[in-house]
Amino acid sequence: MKKETRILHAGSHPERFHGAVNPPVYHVSTVLHPSVAAMETSGKTPFEGMRYGRFGTPTTFALEEAVAELEGGHRSVATSSGLAGITGALMAFLKAGDHLLMVDTAYFPTRKFCDDVLSGLGVETTYYDPLIGGGITALMRPNTKVVFTESPGSLTFEVQDVPAIAMAAHAGGAIVMMDNTWGALTFQPFAKGVDISIQAATKYIVGHADAMLGVITAATPDLWLKVKSSVAAFGHSPGAEEMYLGLRGLRTLPVRLRQHAATALRLARWLEGRPEVDRVLYPPLESDPGHDLWKRDFSGACGLFGVILKPAPKAAVDAMLDGFDHFKLGFSWGGFESLVIPTTGHSIIRTASDWAPAGPSLRFHAGLEDADDLQDDLERGLERLGRGG
């Protein structure tokens, strides 16, 4: 079956729930066992079936099953946020004395976790140029346990050669993790050599800006058990309503992604032609440096892209952003709404690669509003920019 068909039914088992199309919302802490023998038996495989609410419920299992099928992995583990997914996965495979290779474009909270938490636990992090490809071999050490990727980078949109990185990492005995939130359904991580894929399900999977959720998917049973054990040990446990909202959003993900991507591409092409714009950062554009890799490895796109303006005073950029009708100022992305944030300054940190834009940089998320309305909103914003505030 095509992915668009599978996503409607993955993780759905009406026969288990009296014919209900959607799995019910299970609000569970205590799970009762019929006997001491049954309780002892369940303790031998605590992550299989129902043992305690924190380990999962039928609502949890439905979402995990669906995401694993769609990403092509063995099994998934749900967490309370995308960041919890990243930190939970890293903690499953790193201990004192280990070395981590982290992509230099990493989401800022990921970098903070590496610098503040992992360093305190005796784990050394080396940041690497996202465009390093197979050259990452030169950075591998005997104690390198994890190579972390994110493609495209969620602020500057560099596309990584994930297969080349994975080949080099595996040759050195490391596993490969990927933040696959931008790729959502359009990048198949396990077919490209990734061992652990993480999505901030808060974004496109939930899709309605109303729940915090993360999902970690593992390629093999052994990797899954390590992740599940780590996540359980740290007490990560998404709420029942959040799991349900993730399932609800998942069912419409393909059609929403197509609309987000079509609108983003139209806006990106239009912005390329504007005199106020130095460069648009969006891999589906033929002019983007990562276009060939994107075309090779991705089957589609999403609504997130960046813009580098030509030099302009901060007051003018602020006036542009403050006056938007549809592009609201807000963090996150992947919901139905259009968003924008300025990314110049503290939002972008580089220690292993160059980032020197010609002017102020912005990140846009093209929502599900009419594309004409969004383009008009951008045009009025650029007029405010040109007036200088």
Rank of each mutant, 00 (worst) to 15 (best):
L304T: 14
L309V: 02
E276F: 00
F305A: 10
G334K: 01
A171S: 14
F55L: 15
G56N: 06
L247D: 10
S29P: 13
A84E: 12
S197E: 03
Q188D: 13
V277G: 01
H326S: 04
R256C: 06
T125R: 01
A218K: 00
V340T: 08
G85C: 11
S287T: 15
E71M: 08
Q199P: 05
R266G: 03
K203M: 06
T181W: 01
W270I: 15
Y26K: 03
E272L: 05
L8N: 03
E272Q: 10
Q160H: 07
T126R: 12
D129W: 12
I196S: 09
R141C: 10
T79D: 06
L267K: 01
P254R: 02
L271S: 01
L118H: 13
D376F: 05
T110F: 13
V340W: 05
S299V: 09
I348Q: 09
G239K: 01
E272M: 04
T105V: 12
L90C: 07
G122V: 10
N22G: 01
R384K: 15
V117D: 09
A240V: 02
D104K: 07
G214W: 02
M1A: 15
D278G: 00
V28E: 04
V117C: 14
A233R: 08
F17L: 01
F148L: 09
Y282D: 06
A366V: 10
A358V: 15
E4P: 13
F61R: 01
A358N: 11
T144N: 09
Y128F: 14
H170S: 13
H33F: 12
A201T: 05
G56A: 03
M102H: 04
G53H: 02
G273I: 08
M212R: 06
P357G: 07
P34R: 11
P357T: 10
S299D: 11
E71G: 05
A218T: 08
D288L: 03
V340L: 08
V21W: 05
G82R: 00
T126Y: 07
E379S: 11
G367C: 06
R141M: 09
P284C: 00
L293C: 03
G53E: 05
E242D: 11
C302N: 15
L304D: 12
E158N: 07
V21R: 09
H33T: 11
E369T: 12
M39C: 12
G173Y: 08
A96S: 14
V103H: 07
L63F: 13
T105S: 04
T125Y: 11
Q188E: 12
M320A: 03
D98P: 14
T87Y: 15
L139W: 03
G239N: 09
G388E: 09
K145T: 13
G193Q: 06
A38T: 09
L90T: 13
D179F: 03
L385T: 02
